[in-house]
C-alpha cells in the first residue's frame, strides 16, 4: 500500500519534471544567450561558447556612458520608455476603474453595450489600427509627441482592462455597497473608501498589465515617434539593426538592461496580485 503511494508520488514528480525541464530550458536559453553576449568582448561575441573565455563588463560601461553613436540617447530613451509606460498604466487604470465601477456597481444604463463593444475591439488586431491611429494623431497634431503613444496605448489597453476589472468587481458582494449606502456613503465615498481598497489586487494586476504592454510596444512607438530624443528604448534597439555591422554585444547588453525594469516591476507587485483580501467580508 505504502509502496503504491510512493510510486504514484514519484511518477507525478517525474511527469512534472519531464514537462518542467524542457520548458525551463526553452525559456532560459534565449535569456542566457542575451546574458552571454552582454558579458563577451566584441571579438568573441559570436564565438558560440557556453561561457566566454574572458568575461567582461566593458559592454555595460559603454552603454551606461553612451559611448556609441547608437547609444547617444540611451538614458533619455530609457526615461522615455519609463514615463510613457507609467503614464499608460495610470491612465488605463483611471479609465478602466471608473468604467468598471460605473457598470458593475452603479449599474448605469448601457453598461452591457459598453462591455460588448469592449469585447468587440478584440476582433480587430492592433496592427490593423496602426495606420488609422497614425492618421488620427496627425489630425490632432501630436505626431512625434509622446502623448500620441500614451493615448494610443491607453486605447489599446483599456478594453481588456475594463473587462478584467468588471469581472473582479462583480465578485465583490453587493451587500457591501448597500451597507455603505446605509452607513451614509455617497457613490464617490463608496468608490474611494470601499471599492478601491478592495479592488487593490486587481488594480495592481491591471496597472502592471498596461504598464508592461506600453513598455514592450514597438510598432506604435516606431510609427508615432520619430525623433531620436522622443523614441522609446524599444525603438532605439530596433535602430541597431539599421546598419550591416550591428554591434551585437551592445544591442544585447541594452536589451538585457531593457528587460530588467519589467522583471523588477513584476517581482515588486507579485505579492499584490495574490487575492484573498476580500476574505471575511461575507460568509459564502
Amino acid at each position: 500500500m505504502k509502496r503504491g503511494i510512493t510510486w504514484r508520488q514519484i511518477s507525478t514528480e517525474a511527469k512534472l519534471l519531464l514537462i518542467g525541464i524542457p520548458v525551463f530550458i526553452w525559456t532560459m536559453l534565449p535569456i542566457y544567450h542575451l546574458f552571454l553576449f552582454a558579458i563577451s568582448p566584441k571579438e568573441s561575441a559570436l564565438g558560440g561558447q557556453l561561457w566566454p573565455t574572458e568575461p567582461t563588463l566593458q559592454n555595460f560601461r559603454i552603454v551606461f556612458k553612451e559611448q556609441h553613436h547608437y547609444l547617444d540617447h540611451f538614458w533619455l530613451q530609457m526615461w522615455n520608455s519609463l514615463i510613457i509606460a507609467v503614464a499608460v498604466g495610470v491612465l488605463t487604470l483611471i479609465v478602466a476603474t471608473g468604467a468598471a465601477f460605473a457598470i458593475s456597481r452603479l449599474k448605469v444604463r448601457g453598461g452591457r453595450l459598453v462591455m460588448n463593444l469592449a469585447l468587440f475591439t478584440y476582433f480587430i488586431p492592433a496592427a490593423f489600427l496602426a495606420v488609422p491611429m497614425y492618421k488620427t494623431m496627425g489630425v490632432y497634431g501630436i505626431l512625434n509627441n509622446q502623448w500620441s503613444l500614451i493615448l494610443a496605448m491607453v486605447t489599446i489597453a483599456s478594453p481588456y482592462s475594463i473587462w478584467v476589472l468588471k469581472q473582479a468587481s462583480d465578485k465583490l458582494p453587493y451587500e457591501l455597497d448597500e451597507a455603505a449606502r446605509m452607513d451614509g456613503a455617497s457613490p464617490l465615498q463608496l468608490f474611494r473608501l470601499v471599492y478601491i481598497p478592495l479592488m487593490m489586487p486587481s488594480l495592481v494586476a491591471v496597472g502592471t498589465y498596461a504598464l508592461l504592454l506600453a513598455w514592450n510596444e514597438y510598432l506604435y512607438a516606431f510609427l508615432l515617434l520619430s525623433n531620436d530624443t522622443k523614441i522609446t528604448l524599444g525603438v532605439a534597439l530596433g535602430n541597431f539593426l539599421a546598419a550591416d555591422d550591428s554591434p551585437w554585444e551592445l544591442l544585447m547588453t541594452t536589451g538585457l538592461l531593457y528587460a530588467l525594469p519589467p522583471a523588477a516591476i513584476y517581482y515588486t507587485f507579485k505579492r499584490y496580485m495574490v487575492g484573498g483580501l476580500t476574505a471575511g467580508a461575507v460568509k459564502s
Partner: peptide, 26 residues
C-alpha cells in the same frame, strides 16, 4: 435606520473598530 445583513457585509479591509465607526466617520 441601520440594517444588519444576512451576510454581515462587514468591510473586509477595516478593523472591527473602523467598521463600527465608518458611518460616524462619513
Amino acid at each position: 435606520i441601520a440594517m444588519v445583513f444576512q451576510s454581515y457585509a462587514l468591510y473586509p479591509h477595516m478593523t472591527v473598530a473602523d467598521n463600527m465607526a465608518f458611518s460616524l466617520k462619513l
